[in-house]
Nucleic acid binder design. Structure first.
Lengths: 124, 124
DNA sequence: TTAAACCATGACATTAATGTCATAGTCAAG
DNA sequence: CTTGACTATGACATTAATGTCATGGTTTAA
């Protein structure tokens, strides 16, 4: 199939499909006229790529194990587990930071509301 | 004081101090030779700017209320509370998204470890 | 054969604060 | 007077996936 059909089937934009190819995640054949020709397997492959992207992995990380997970169960790919664990720590760090900021914001909001209420009471 | 001294006192880089100025957050005088001359108040002002930046607000947002909070208690600045509340929602959204990804990652990790253990048991 | 729809490539934009470099003027101490 | 430490401005880079535009070749249906 050609790139437009693959884009429609997978939900990825044509631009993204070309990008995945440049990042080494897809390798379509070429027709005589230069058009990309994707096998039926490409559809599942693109879904897989997008699944990992949604998990927060970079195309570079995905390129490190995609060839393996396309042929085996994920558990057989040694590269995957450490990458997941690293990503998990990264995300935990981000969540911690956001929670700190969140707590700070809530404090500020509370103290503003408190001060305003006290200001009101003084006027009674 | 000159920019180097202010940078050292506040921990902000010289580059950042010039950037804050361009964003309308700082307005130092100029000496005859063109050098920036900061008043002693600038030090507190920069700390305030960096405090709000650390809360995740943008320089543009900060510019919207900085003049007020420098002269009054924060609670008197009408612009601040809605900005805090908006930022809080934004951060809650980010935390929710990260938690989803986190849950997904933990699932993948669990199932990989489970499959590997089962694989081991079959060899017993 | 012609217009519409598709494809290719390459370039530029996006976001926001900061780093870094190049070039050049200023000042202070020796 | 000269050298080193400061300062000024402007430009470019960073990050990563995606959008968008320009230009031009290809195909297909009328």
């Amino acid at each position: 199939m050609k790139i437009g059909e693959l884009a429609e089937r997978t939900g990825a934009s044509i631009r993204s499909l070309r990008y995945y190819e440049r990042q080494g995640l897809l390798a379509p054949m070429r027709q005589e006229n230069g058009y990309r020709e994707y096998s039926v397997l490409a559809e599942e492959q693109v879904r897989t790529i997008r699944f990992y992207l949604a998990l927060g992995l970079s195309t570079e990380q995905i390129a490190g194990f995609l060839h393996c997970v396309l042929r085996n169960k994920e558990a057989f790919c040694e590269e995957v587990l450490p990458m997941y664990q690293q990503k998990l720590e990264e995300i935990d760090g981000q969540i911690r930071l956001l929670n700190q900021i969140r707590a700070n914001l809530k404090d500020r909001i509370s103290s503003i509301l408190l001060e305003r209420n006290q200001g009101q009471e003084e006027k009674i």
